[in-house]
Nucleic acid binder design. Structure first.
Lengths: 340, 340
DNA sequence: AATTGGCACTCTGAACACTGGAGTGCTAAG
DNA sequence: CTTAGCACTCCAGTGTTCAGAGTGCCAATT
């Protein structure tokens, strides 16, 4: 059984280890914290914690460091939310204040988050599953080359260049543009794709070749919207924390560049009651990120779309501060996107 | 005076050092390469090269490594272009073959280049100074919120969300849309910006408030097009070559994340007669990249726009192969963009 | 039963000396 | 101009030592 005090010991071990990067021993604990008991007592508690696999001694006679399980217990029950400093709140306000468009807001957000946490920051583009088609635009670049643009009501713009099999004049394009907008404007993306599949039938036979190409491209764009995307900032912070990784940081950096992996990870994380998801150490092993922890929070954008943002760093990170930062940024971002 | 053989010695020093990462001594030179002379002779040549500051001995009695000046001489006069392997050509073809839109092509290109060279790859978005406005689209999101889209003839799309001071109905928007397109379609970006500045005058007084906001946003978008952007891939490769940096790679990674620095660097590099620009070591000092070299080549896109792409890596890199890769990729990209 | 002081033991990491090998510069002879 | 020979230098790796921090355990205390 782990006593109340043992848990307190675990807390200070996590705290001190995160602060100093060195295994923490019984002596240094009684020195730095006023436990009112002797080092020997702490040692007994530590033996208990080790029994429970919450801490481990890297070498036979050195201090202890938390295990993944120890960190997990810490974040679930022991971590106190560190409120942001006024300066940090200030930074959030000014960073996200002057929003221009979606791309810009997200780019600022990811930079902000990496600065606040000194970790790698990740922001997922809003998933557009609930978005609707606002407008479709066709622009002739040459007589056989067309730029197709799909605009959703979340302000997302998706563009393609398409090569037509036969030359198209302006009247024809205007006709297609009017009809396609009439067909799909205001529809959800799924439904729009379905309509586009049968769109060609409206036209007379000799037009169909061109229309089919256009409709196919548009359908692709509409579904491509679904395909998720991530922006990343602060990869340099990984180097700064290099000492926290047993091996090289190379595989970690590679995984980070391979966005697909992170997107899968994001999607598999479950949020706790505060809306924060935390994945620690070996829990990430299937993603090649066994020595890292990921904190994530959902945020919502105008179209009701939900996406995630978060940070990635070594298991040995300042969970309290980082959780606070992720929560705050997610909240501000939701607010900022909801308003605008 | 540096003899013919001395230069050959420099070449093999660069070659061997790049291959082995170890200072190369006179003995190992005569072992590995068939100079018809003894080690002592090589030593004399090396003394000469050191006199000229082309090579340097890191410690009193160790082999020599090339200086920045040595690398410079090497790339200017000694480097033989290593042709790409068939597999590499194949990779380029397949990577750039299935182009969809500009963003996509550039994203593929930068990945490709970082894979081919095992360095950090950089691709600059085509500068649109010569581009023309193709079409402007205004989409009402709500009655007071407008999405403005500027499309150029290079296929670039720039979007903004703008808040109107008073509600606007569809007729009004249609009117503005028609007039603004009539005013600026087909114009170069500079001229378009100039027209937009006086665009508001066309309208009756009580409309002007809204129109002014729209025109200002559009003008901003048109000029923002000019503001250059970079995509980067392969930052993980920096970690792989970490041993080549005396200090930490942290400042390098930071500079890489700070795109502004790289854009300035790109813009200041002068191309040689083959269209390749090379900047070595301390030549990059003002950018905080004193231990890195940058290879760049221009490429051209459809609208006649010119931009650059290249790689960044430690001074000790395989110049021959990397130059060949950069040239090849730039050429293929130009071709691919010119066609499409 | 929990806590404590004491003690023997272990392990790390820094400091130090030692050594072999690779490389250099110089000189004198071919 | 080239070369062999020689004395010299320095690095990197290998032991060795030693102090410090930490542990586990036990008997004594509260």
């Amino acid at each position: 059984m782990v006593s109340e005090r043992s848990l307190e010991v675990l807390r200070v071990i996590v705290h001190d280890y995160v602060a100093s990067r060195e295994p923490v021993g019984s002596k240094s604990i009684v020195d730095r914290h006023s436990f009112g008991v002797s080092a020997a007592t702490i040692r007994n508690d530590m033996a208990l914690l080790e029994e429970e696999e919450l801490i481990v001694a890297p070498h036979t006679s050195s201090g202890r460091i938390p295990t993944d399980k120890g960190y997990r217990l810490f974040v679930d029950h022991l971590a106190d939310l560190k409120p942001l400093s006024p300066a940090q709140r200030q930074a959030i306000e000014t960073f996200l204040g002057s929003s221009v468009d979606l791309d810009d807001v997200l780019a600022r957000t990811v930079r902000l988050l990496s600065q606040l946490t000194q970790q790698v920051a990740l922001v997922q583009y809003p998933s557009l599953s609930q978005a609707k088609v606002r407008h479709i635009e066709l622009v002739a670049l040459t007589s056989t080359r067309l730029l197709t643009v799909v605009i959703t009501d979340t302000g997302h713009v998706e563009q393609r260049i398409v090569e037509l099999p036969v030359a198209a004049d302006d009247d024809f394009l205007a006709d297609v543009r009017a009809r396609v907008n009439a067909s799909v404007s205001g529809l959800g993306l799924d439904e729009a794709a379905a309509r586009l599949a049968v769109f060609t039938e409206q036209f007379v036979a000799d037009r169909r070749v061109s229309v089919a190409v256009i409709a196919a491209t548009l359908a692709e764009q509409v579904t491509a919207n679904r395909q998720e995307k991530l922006i990343i900032a602060g990869a340099a912070n990984l180097v700064r924390t290099e000492g926290d990784f047993a091996g090289s940081i190379l595989p970690v950096l590679e995984a980070v560049e391979e966005q697909v992996v992170l997107l899968r990870l994001f999607s598999e994380m479950q949020a706790d009651e505060h809306g924060i998801s935390i994945s620690i150490g070996r829990e990430n092993a299937p993603f090649g990120l066994a020595e890292t922890s990921v904190l994530a929070s959902g945020y919502s954008s105008a179209g009701g779309a939900v996406a995630r943002l978060g940070v990635l760093g070594p298991t040995r990170m300042d969970y309290s501060s980082n959780i606070a930062a992720v929560r705050a940024v997610a909240r501000y971002l939701s607010k900022s996107l909801g308003e605008s």
